Amino acid sequence: MINSLFCLFQILLVSSSSDKERWVVPGGGVEPQEEPTLAAVREALEEAGAKGLLGRKIGVFENIEKKHRTNLYAFIVTDLLDEWEDGKVMGRRRQWFNIVEARDHLAHKPVQVTYLELLNVKDLNGIVKR
Rank of each mutant, 00 (worst) to 15 (best):
Val89Pro: 00
Ala48Leu: 08
Asp82Met: 11
Val60Asn: 03
Leu116Arg: 12
Phe97Met: 11
Ala44Glu: 02
Val113Ser: 02
Asn125Val: 06
Gly126Met: 08
Asp82Glu: 15
Leu106Tyr: 04
Leu72Gly: 07
Lys51Phe: 15
Glu34Arg: 00
Asn63His: 09
Leu124Phe: 10
Val100Thr: 06
His68Lys: 08
Val41Ser: 06
Lys122Arg: 03
Leu5Ser: 08
Val30Thr: 12
Ile11Phe: 06
Leu119Arg: 13
Ile99Leu: 15
Val14Cys: 14
Lys122Ser: 11
Arg93Met: 08
Val24Ala: 10
Glu35Thr: 09
Leu38Phe: 13
Ser18Pro: 00
Glu85Met: 01
Val14Ser: 10
Val111Cys: 00
Ala48Gln: 00
Glu85Tyr: 13
Ile64Phe: 09
Ile64Met: 07
Leu54Ile: 15
His108Trp: 12
Glu34Gly: 04
Ile11Arg: 02
Lys20Asp: 12
Glu34Pro: 05
His105Leu: 08
Val30Phe: 09
Phe6Gln: 14
Lys129Thr: 09
Pro26Thr: 07
Tyr115Phe: 12
Leu119Gln: 12
Pro32Lys: 05
His105Glu: 14
Cys7Ile: 02
Gly52Thr: 06
His68Phe: 11
Glu34Gln: 15
Leu81Ser: 12
Trp84Met: 03
Gly49Ser: 05
Arg130Ala: 11
Glu46Cys: 00
Arg103Asn: 00
Ala74Met: 06
Ala107Thr: 09
Val77Met: 11
Ser15Gln: 03
Val100Lys: 12
Ala44Leu: 04
Asn3Tyr: 04
Ile58Ser: 13
Arg69Lys: 08
Val60Asp: 01
Val128Pro: 05
Lys66Asp: 07
Glu47Trp: 04
Glu35Met: 04
Thr78Val: 12
Tyr115Gln: 01
His108Cys: 01
Ser17Thr: 05
Ala50Asp: 03
Val41Lys: 14
Val77Lys: 03
Leu124Glu: 05
Asn71Thr: 13
Asp19Cys: 00
Met1Leu: 14
Glu62Tyr: 02
Arg93Cys: 02
Val89Lys: 10
Ile2Lys: 15
Trp84Glu: 07
Pro32Ile: 09
Trp84His: 07
Leu80Cys: 06
Val25His: 01
Lys129Met: 04
Tyr73Phe: 15
Ile11Leu: 07
Ala74Trp: 12
Lys66Met: 09
Asn63Cys: 14
Leu54Gln: 09
Ile76Arg: 11
Trp96Thr: 03
Glu47Gln: 13
Tyr73Val: 06
Asp82Asn: 12
Arg56Lys: 15
Gln95Glu: 15
Val111Asp: 02
Arg103Asp: 01
Gly29Asn: 08
Asp82Gly: 14
Pro32Tyr: 00
Pro32Thr: 05
Met1Ile: 10
Ala50Asn: 03
Phe61Pro: 04
Leu53Lys: 15
Ile99Arg: 09
Gly59Gln: 13
Ile99Glu: 08
Arg56Glu: 11
Trp23Ser: 05
Asp79Thr: 10
Pro26Ser: 00
Gln112Thr: 01
Arg42Trp: 02
Thr37Glu: 15
His105Met: 14
Leu72Gln: 06
Asp82Pro: 07
Cys7Arg: 15
Val25Gly: 08
Val41Asp: 12
Leu80Phe: 11
Ile127Lys: 06
Thr78Glu: 15
Arg69Met: 14
